[in-house]
Design a protein around this nucleic acid. Sequence first.
DNA 1: AAATATATAGTAAACGGTTGACATATAAAA
DNA 2: TTTTATATGTCAACCGTTTACTATATATTT
Lengths: 325, 325
Amino acid sequence: MANLKDVAALAGISITTVSRVLNNRGYISKETRKKVYDAMKKLNYSPNEVARSLFRQHTNMIGVIVPSISNPFYGKLAEAIETHAAAKGFKVMLCNSFHETEKEIEYIKMLEGNKVDGVIIGSRSTNLVEYMGTGLPFVTIDRILSDSIPCVSSDNYQGGVLATQFLIEKGCKNLAFIGGSRKLNMMANKRNEAFMTICKDAGVKCMSLETGEEELSAMDYVACIERLFRENPKVDGVFASSDLIAAQTIQTAVKSGRKVPQDIRVIGYDDIIVARMTTPSITTIRQPINEMGRYAVDIILDEAKGEIVPKTTVLPVRLIVREST
Amino acid sequence: MANLKDVAALAGISITTVSRVLNNRGYISKETRKKVYDAMKKLNYSPNEVARSLFRQHTNMIGVIVPSISNPFYGKLAEAIETHAAAKGFKVMLCNSFHETEKEIEYIKMLEGNKVDGVIIGSRSTNLVEYMGTGLPFVTIDRILSDSIPCVSSDNYQGGVLATQFLIEKGCKNLAFIGGSRKLNMMANKRNEAFMTICKDAGVKCMSLETGEEELSAMDYVACIERLFRENPKVDGVFASSDLIAAQTIQTAVKSGRKVPQDIRVIGYDDIIVARMTTPSITTIRQPINEMGRYAVDIILDEAKGEIVPKTTVLPVRLIVREST
DNA sequence: AAATATATAGTAAACGGTTGACATATAAAA
DNA sequence: TTTTATATGTCAACCGTTTACTATATATTT
């Protein structure tokens, strides 16, 4: 691979001048500029970004840690992050933690060593804070890790309100909420809070089901849902905390002879592609995943520049009505 | 951030010795080793991988270019690649090209500049070859780009055979295939070939529908499928070239009053999460995506080491029977 | 004619780490 | 006692690029 020296030699000028045209600094004549570009083209030269990074003390690279990119929610999030980062000239290093704290710690160390300019964490582990050294900027998605780490989320409480009210409006009298573990300090817990509050206010019978880590990792909630139906056969509306749960709720309901939405209404959360693809398609609360990714990138970049950034950024959600309600 | 010099100073030894314990070279006493580790811990030191990469002339990083990581197939693929790469000490840079040749070229240049050790391309553009400079190793997924670039795929022909035979066994007399553009030089075209051949051999009526770029990008095939049903109302079996198409085929069939699988049987391809989540769940051909990712990584790493690698690697597929047939 | 702007070159240090050559000192083995 | 293995140190070169500094040589204004 050609380097600056080769380009300078071919163009018949000094290394310094070549570097100047590359970085648009100082005075350069048109002819010199042309000579340089010609030599670069001839040698198929592209600057060694590793060397640049070393000198400049930043890499224009951000790390993204998610539990699993094959989970459609994180897939969309990562796509939004990468797209927006690329538009700003930043690269993305992808890390799948599979909910394992150890891996997350390892990834953080790795990213630190690779001198990324910041890390976006869409992950669930606690106790990560102590491993987040001094200088590196972090942003979390949907999760408060510590007071000093900014968080981007959507309005989970409002999402809970919207979903619950809609189910009640549709005439449900016996609601169930299915969500993830409440022990994790996730903003998503607010969906459940809103659900309980709205149900209580409306005098509607309600219950909530908490699933575990295994279900989350395997993306398989069927056993939980079957139990829910067995123990509460009169449930006529389910607010699922993800579209994946909603899809499986529909499967389980249909299998037990219930019709969706006639016998039981189901509403999901996230509005990932699965919600559009099922039969019946899933009414859901759309999180503005693109915008969440965009804000996460903007914030991490501002942080890296030493600017003051908001501690929390809450984006609005929207009810998307489809066939399952 | 602490560097080698700081660690050496704190440990009271020379920079060279610290570098020696870091790289396990030469003779080091236990006490010195301990002093170094203590100092490293105290300073929260981690070696600057950028500097290392510059010296070593490789980055332990690979680039992955996919059309869209939010497409569940590529999400799974990227996850498999990242997981396997991480296990081997390699990092992954993620690139979403959205099927735009320009972006792919830009990404390739970027990855070249960042001195990645290799690039895995799960993308569809032609004419990329001229931009793939001299030294950088490439591997494609499911696509022959040129004679000299290794390709990893699953056995698309066999997948087509399995799917078509299964539909015929189930009693279908009037089959349709829905797939992507055949102009692209994808291995996936072989599914269609197999479909036509098997149908002809069995004397079963068949047709095949080719969707375009827009449908692929938007992941929305409903209009195509509606037309198919309108123009061929007697179709009683559909072989869809992806689970996304299969899911939408089921939606469209149900909407038009057909029952799945009683009136029309649908078989998908890939076995992504969507196939498990729909009602009815989708019978499909499972591509061994994990293994495809693993082989892609192994091959790119071997290539980077200058070893001889197979030109094509074809992994077996499997029929997964669910409810849609 | 003097002052200023423009255009280019060379040298050297820096970024942080690795490595080879060479020196030195102690401890164990021949 | 000599040899050898072990343990550390110093020094310098190197990876490819940036940049500050200094030096010159034109060209253009005052």
